[in-house]
Design a protein around this nucleic acid. Structure first.
Lengths: 177, 177
DNA sequence: CCTTGAAACGGATGGATCATCCACTTGAAG
DNA sequence: CTTCAAGTGGATGATCCATCCGTTTCAAGG
């Protein structure tokens, strides 16, 4: 794809900025148009779907997570590395409202799909190492852990967010053999 | 409130029946009107909001849960009674799509609000007994357990539902001291 | 500079969905 | 059989969505 024209790049940035100020389940193309002073058509041109906008907002977080997973996959202390990975994932999801949708959505760009696959592969290696080290029960898959993290995020969000560490701690304790 | 007229009772029943065939997040008054052959106005008259309809659909499940909690609150084996209560709650929520909304929604009828309060009070007694018996860690509140159950439900629903017991097992294991 | 064509923009507009309102019908009490 | 409160239906205006295309802007080549 050819580079964006100057005005287009400016519009794109303005839309993303306005979107950051909105709750992710309250994103309306029309509102973004009003907030940015752009036309609705322009907003749709840049982000045809809400999902595509969420992807753009959180691709960086996804990259971060992949990096952490890569480190965890080859850590000398697999147990701690894995629980740290889980914690990082949960904290990132909680600080980035809308990230869970990107991690879980079905209609997602090939680029994000590839990143997610890489994340899962690396995390699977880290999980495997932790299991072999006797730090994690052997009967859970990496997909299941990922879904549990989403579940904890959900539980924390139902409250005021103050018990993030406690709830996450319960789940991590439950993962021990 | 005076007793329903015969035709009204019939309409109400038809609406509830049709609603049961729909995913709870896909309930539209207009669809229910089409499916039942009633007018839209009639559907709105019986259930002004989607929440009111969900309440009607799941009030019985809420009652069931209160009964189980009442037993658990005075059980001779508090540890098992409490984990059984948690399991029952989770299974009920998973078998009744939409029940979580009733347990958690903010704009809820006084009747349901009272039931929820009763459920929490009884569960708190059961939790307390389990803690004193050394079966459950003492640093979690009953509200937190309830939210964790909602989280597990979320995690199970993200998958195909086959690992319900495993994921629930992880959480329950995490609740031990 | 100009020219030119592709890229980007804007917003009017048709389509969909929502929920209200009120004229009409039905049930049941006396 | 009357009466009227309760119940019903669906036309309708309000709101929200997303497309389409005429206009404007950018930047590459002359």
């Amino acid at each position: 794809m050819p580079a964006l024209r100057a005005d287009a790049a400016r519009s794109r940035a303005r839309i993303l900025e306005a979107a950051r100020a909105l709750p992710p389940d309250g994103i309306r193309h029309n509102d973004l148009a009003r907030d940015t002073g752009l036309g609705v058509g322009t907003v749709y041109r840049h982000f045809p779907t809400v999902t595509s906008l969420l992807e753009a907002l959180h691709r960086d977080a996804l990259g971060e997570l992949v990096a952490v997973a890569r480190d965890a996959a080859s850590s000398p202390s697999p147990g701690k590395a894995f629980t740290d990975l889980v914690k990082t994932g949960a904290e990132l999801q909680l600080s980035r409202d809308g990230l869970q949708a990107v991690l879980v959505a079905k209609d997602v760009s090939p680029e994000v799909r590839a990143l997610r696959e890489e994340l899962l592969d690396l995390s699977a290696v880290a999980l495997d190492a932790a299991v072999r080290d006797g730090q994690v029960r052997p009967d859970v898959s990496i997909e299941q852990v990922q879904r549990l993290v989403c579940g904890v995020e959900h539980a924390v969000r139902l409250g005021d967010g103050h018990d993030r560490d406690l709830l996450l701690g319960v789940m991590i304790a439950g993962l021990r053999p």
